[in-house]
């Protein structure tokens, strides 16, 4: 396999992930254990799902700031329907997912239809979804329905027999894994995926080529809305509650993970594999800081900020080298 310059950021991200894990394993006892890895996956499953949605939008050259608010909104919708409305959780989740997709579709339609900046429309969407979340449930509402507590959170786990270190994979992690695989397939193996890259790379060119630019743009925001709702459902399963204050600013964590994973915010370049690595790096930093014990939680922010800078600066450098090679 030939290594292209644009794959380098991905490779570097993977090296950072492996190095950070190795450093943790050398420095702390019990770090390189199945339990730590399991927690890493469980605690970041909802971020992963949200980051996949952000990857679609960013690849298409847009941005979605409404992710965290839509997650909170769908969370309280599920909680309200199940606990107050007596609706079966399966149906409540289906309704929440449909609402999320519709919300994203509407945002996409406004962005595309009225040529308004995505930044603004999704910012308004963020305020709207957050306000609606509080309108549905002013406070956090626990979900006690046995279908959520027992069927989804216990029966739907996959047992992983690893001898002494046998463990289970909860449904939330499975949902995250399936999301990544499906997103990878859609982006890499379908005409729709190629269109997402095309409009992110060169919107005018894609328009001139006669690609269905409008439909693709709107679909991308609908996908992001749907995945935000799915991330909200994963969060509800994780917390067993619907909380209107949940996931404030999560869209920025998702964008940070996407950027660390080598996807350019300008659009057209990147991959969902990079996003997976970005999310894992993000989670690993938090794990290491917890293990260190003496470091306060705010170091997470500082390290993540520094990593974003390091990655985008490295990408810039690579681009310049690549251009010089192309010129020579």
């Amino acid at each position: 396999m030939k290594l292209r310059p644009r794959d380098l950021p991905l490779l570097v991200a993977a090296i950072v992930l492996v190095t950070a894990f190795a450093a943790g394993a050398l420095r702390y006892d019990h770090f390189a254990s199945v339990a730590v890895v399991r927690n890493l996956l469980v605690d970041n499953a909802f971020l992963g799902v949200a980051a996949v949605g952000a990857t679609f939008v960013i690849l298409s050259g847009g941005i979605d700031l409404s992710v965290g608010a839509v997650m909170a909104f769908t969370g309280v919708v599920v909680a309200a329907l199940v606990e107050r409305g007596g609706v079966h959780p399966g149906i409540a989740i289906a309704i929440a997912l449909a609402l999320g997709a519709a919300f994203g579709l509407l945002q996409g339609a406004i962005i595309r239809g009225f040529a308004l900046p995505a930044f603004l429309v999704t910012l308004a969407g963020m305020f709207l979804a957050r306000g609606m979340a509080f309108a549905v449930e002013p406070q956090s509402r626990p979900i006690r329905h046995p279908f959520v507590a027992t069927t989804l959170n216990e029966s739907a786990t996959i047992a992983l027999p690893l001898g002494e270190t046998s463990t289970t994979i909860p449904l939330t992690v499975s949902i995250g894994a399936v999301t990544f695989v499906v997103a990878w397939f859609v982006l890499r193996q379908t005409p729709f995926g190629r269109r997402v890259y095309a409009i992110g790379d060169d919107l005018q060119g894609a328009t001139v080529l006669g690609l269905p630019v409008a439909a693709t743009t709107i679909a991308v925001y609908a996908i992001s809305g749907f995945l935000s709702a799915l991330a909200g459902v994963v969060f509800v399963l994780y917390q067993q509650a619907g909380d209107p204050t949940a996931c404030k600013g999560l869209e920025l964590d998702a964008i940070a993970a996407v950027v660390i994973g080598g996807t350019l915010l300008r659009g057209g370049v990147g991959s969902v594999v990079g996003t997976l690595i970005g999310v894992l790096i993000y989670g690993l930093i938090q794990t290491i800081i917890t293990f260190e014990g003496t470091l306060s939680s705010w170091w997470t922010r500082i390290v993540v900020g520094a990593l974003i800078l390091a990655f985008v600066a490295a990408q810039r450098g690579l681009e310049r080298v690549g251009r010089r090679l192309a010129d020579a």
Partner: peptide
């Protein structure tokens, strides 16, 4: 560019 300080600055 400003996302860097937005994330790190509060820290």
């Amino acid at each position: 560019a400003t996302l860097v300080l937005m994330v790190a600055g509060r820290g």
